[in-house]
Amino acid sequence: REAGDMTHLFSIIVLLLKINATKSCSGVSLKTQELYLLVFVTRYLDLFQSYISLYNSCMKFIFIVSSGCIIGYMRKHKVVSQTYDAEQDTFRVAFLVWPSFLLAAVINQKLSVMEILWTFSIYLESVAILPQLVLLQRTKNVDNLTSNYVFLLGSYRGLYLLNWIYRCLTEEGYRQWIVWISGLLQTAIYCDFFYYYLKSWRKNERLSLPS
């Protein structure tokens, strides 16, 4: 789990570094970033309500602030915002948000606002990368930092799968089907990307996804 959290954190650092160092966000999907902000805000509503550990609270805080920061760069920064590929980043996010919300309203563990929003965030996270993957496919010569960002982000949920298997074997009564199935879907969505990423990495070439 620690490795999963760290790859998640690194993915965000890599993206912020890319944007800040190159003053460019080309190849980065604003739609995916906005979906992630929605995911973090709806999942971490309990930030001030239930306390698990300092580590958890800090990470939640970092995830919310950093995705807000990335969105701010892409929308407001006078240089960076010019480099955003708005014409290419056209995924219809309503097709991800509404089904996730309806599914969360139907399939959840407890019928309460907090629980439904939490479940919604789990469902939405599993598909939030899709606009980014579509944008990557449309971009010829994806830059290394962007492809590393997507690779790290995909590794995060993959490593969580291992964490879940371990916890399931060692902790009695540890079951969370909604999270597991969503996490499995989330990781599966990256399979195609992983294949081409590792192929280009082995050949020492820039990544370009077949359209």
Binding site: R1, D5, H8, D46, S50, I52, S53, N56, M59, K60, F63, W118, Y160, N163, E171, G173, Y174, R175, Q176, V179
Partner: peptide, 10 residues
């Protein structure tokens, strides 16, 4: 509340 019922993951 049992440990596993707490949402202790991120």
């Amino acid at each position: 509340l049992k440990r596993h019922q707490v949402k202790d993951e991120l």
